[in-house]
Design a protein around this nucleic acid. Structure first.
Lengths: 242, 242
DNA sequence: TAGTGGTCTAGACCACCTG
DNA sequence: AGGTGGTCTAGACCACTAG
């Protein structure tokens, strides 16, 4: 049972995506929307601020709220999609494109130095080291490396890695929500290994996203690094001034 | 006069940056902080949610709020810094490094097709086309192209472009706040022209940020594109799950 | 002046975590 | 059980925009 303001946000987002509100159209005011949904203005405001941050509407003080003109191109936005956060590839794009995975390698290893540091592990901690290729409509678009702490997730079936969502598996297994994807975005180039996995030229541009994931009890359990084809992926920003 | 929750956010951020709160330390609870600042819990919550999104603290339901371990490296974060938004280079980094600018070119031209489209201009609109190189401690790190609508900003003194902050000039001139920097991040490669301006190798990796800027009355007035050395810049993300 | 979003209060109940 | 953050109410005043 999601919070009311999430439900309202999604309801209005659907109204926008389905065209019931046209681009540029003025939305009803907060004071009009509140009684429609049976909540107070503060709750409506929380919904609308989220919609603004997600880029669907624009709020202008003294004028009102307006449907933003959302750009539609032939690229994918890493932080777009139906969910409320950036929590993994399958979950983001599963609904709008035909996503498949190919498991490249899976090993249980002693955590390497940079993983120990990133996840605050002890020196002999064991981690699942996983490399997968993700494809959209049979076209390989990114490589994702994951290092998952074995103490938290004992086993990971290959079937999950080969087509399912790793994050959904983990949430089902632990009965906890995945909470953080505190990540860093940078640009780099594809080396020989990665380029061959994606069938692109060596030294072609890459959008690299690294980050850690926690369960909602605060336990760090995953460090991941995704190597995305720069011609396929962008990141949308909605840093709102003020 | 900033809003109270902004003041409180900055006050606590200062406490973190100055080390009065140690990394990992538990912060006072919302119910403790509220009377300290003479506000209600809702106001404290707004401050703390901002601090969370900016990556300074972590909130854990039922446990408390904790100072996040902020990574310090030899790179700059495009969305780091003291301000509340990503509103231009000078403003972000001016306080922590020696920033200079070099004006490469400035012309008043008829808006090219992609600018007309991005800014919803009429076909014969005039724009200032500006290219600047930015340097940190005399090292060139990025090229920024700006297209600014002449109807909104009639003249732009070369002195502003050569060392001042263009955005501050515009806010002073218009007596309005700059409101949106709705941007898109992608990876690309430096071509000959840009590489020579930054003294890097052709085809070295680039973090490209494009976006538009509005005044707070909603008027689009600027399209900009910055070409950032990938070895110098990252973008921090704080997509918080839930 | 009327309507809009922006901020804030005082209080309530819920969900979660720890002892 | 007691403390924490998460959500929500009902109402107020302010700042901004428009006719």
């Amino acid at each position: 049972m999601a919070a009311r303001y999430i439900e309202i946000k999604n309801s209005i987002k659907d109204d926008i995506l389905s065209g019931r509100y046209q681009v540029g159209e003025k939305l009803p005011s907060e004071r009009e929307l509140a009684p429609v949904y049976g909540v107070t203005r503060v709750t409506i405001q929380k919904s609308m601020h989220m919609l603004e941050q997600e880029g669907f509407i624009e709020r202008i003080h003294g004028k009102g709220m307006f449907v933003a003109n959302t750009l539609a191109e032939n690229v994918y936005f890493l932080n777009d999609g139906p969910s409320d956060a950036f929590l993994g590839f399958s979950r983001e794009f599963g609904s709008k494109a035909n996503i498949t995975s190919r498991l490249v390698s899976q090993q249980l290893i002693t955590a390497p130095e940079h993983i120990i540091k990133a996840l605050n592990l002890t020196r002999d901690a064991q981690v699942h080291a996983i490399r997968r290729v993700r494809l959209i409509d049979t076209v390989p678009v990114l490589v994702e490396d994951s290092w998952i702490v074995q103490a938290v997730i004992p086993v990971i079936p290959a079937s999950v890695l080969d087509k399912g969502s790793l994050y959904e598996y983990i949430e089902r297994l632990t009965h906890k929500k995945i909470k953080f994807y505190n990540s860093v975005i940078e640009a780099s180039l594809f080396d020989e290994t990665l380029a061959s996995l994606l069938d692109v030229a060596v030294n072609s541009p890459m959008l690299k996203v690294t980050g850690t994931t926690k369960l909602d009890d605060g336990s760090l359990f995953n460090y991941s690094c995704s190597y995305n084809r720069a011609d396929k992926f962008r990141v949308k920003n909605n840093w709102v001034g003020k």
